[in-house]
């Protein structure tokens, strides 16, 4: 089975995030890492491959340096990486990003396309829906357990009221949650071998995507203004001297919240 995993390089969780006031885009120059739930998607793909054979290919849209982060997923056990890196793609919104990724995925013709549930920077949690729609493939999202018999895929979906179990014929698109597995650490052998795994960098032209359809030109949204969130309202700090519970209760009652 051929599995494509969409992964995104995001600013490292420990790095302070900054938005460039000029371009109104996230500053991506600092420490970077692979988006955390995308590692769950990579792990799941590798497990499927280990159990049933096949190939795991990483697909990403991002700057050239995103290759560094893709290396980690290659070291974990993915077979090759395809990075779409093109100046003209910078500033793509959901519509433009999904167009480019769909074009890259069309080229791969994978049986199963895996996504992480959400990115830690954009936090849209919606890209997989847009991509599945463009590919005209069924979609299961928020998947906490996944099985496949080679012709269908079944996902256990976490919802507010419990689990939904949903099956879809392959080829399909699945977005996984971080509950699905515990991503492995790359082994030293994996790390040393990652360099020699195929890593392709493609331009928009390679994918047949018109530059006018990508980046800001191809986006349907425009960021008009950015501002800090409003300051937090009045807050009360209670130090526990044994009466904290009572004080919290009084506070809530006073505000008619209880």
């Amino acid at each position: 089975m051929k599995i494509a995993v969409c992964v995104k390089q995001v600013p490292d969780a420990t790095a302070a995030k900054r938005i460039d006031p000029e371009t109104k885009r996230l500053d991506r120059s600092g420490e970077a890492a692979l988006n955390a739930t995308d590692l769950n998607a990579v792990e799941e793909a590798i497990r499927l491959k280990e159990a049933q054979g096949g190939e795991v290919v990483l697909v990403s849209l991002g700057p050239e340096r995103a290759l560094e982060s893709l290396r980690k997923a290659l070291a974990m056990g993915a077979d090759r990486a395809v990075l779409v890196a093109d100046e003209a793609a910078a500033g793509s919104d959901l519509v433009a990003t999904s167009r480019i990724l769909a074009a890259a995925l069309e080229r791969e013709q994978a049986d199963l396309v895996l996504f992480g549930q959400a990115s830690s920077d954009g936090d849209g949690a919606v890209l997989w829906a847009a991509v599945a729609d463009r590919l005209r493939r069924p979609l299961i999202s928020q998947v906490a357990a996944l099985t496949t018999d080679g012709s269908t895929v079944t996902g256990k979906r976490q919802t507010e009221h419990g689990y939904d179990t949903i099956s879809a014929p392959l080829p399909a698109v699945v977005a996984v949650s971080d509950a699905i597995n515990e991503p492995r650490y790359p082994s030293l052998k994996g790390i040393m071998g990652a360099k020699s795994k195929p890593q392709e960098t493609l331009s928009l032209a390679d994918l047949g995507v018109d530059a006018a359809e990508a980046g800001e030109a191809g986006s349907r949204t425009t960021v008009l203004a950015l501002g800090p969130p409003p300051a937090r309202g009045e807050s009360l700090k209670i130090e526990d001297d044994g009466s904290a519970a009572q004080k919290i209760l009084d506070y809530l009652v006073e505000r008619r919240l209880l």
Binding site: E68, R71, P186, A194
Partner: peptide, 15 residues
């Protein structure tokens, strides 16, 4: 090198 960085990051996370 990229490999050395990845080894450091892996052991750091493991630790």
């Amino acid at each position: 090198t990229p490999e050395q960085e990845l080894i450091r990051d892996t052991v750091r996370t493991f630790a």
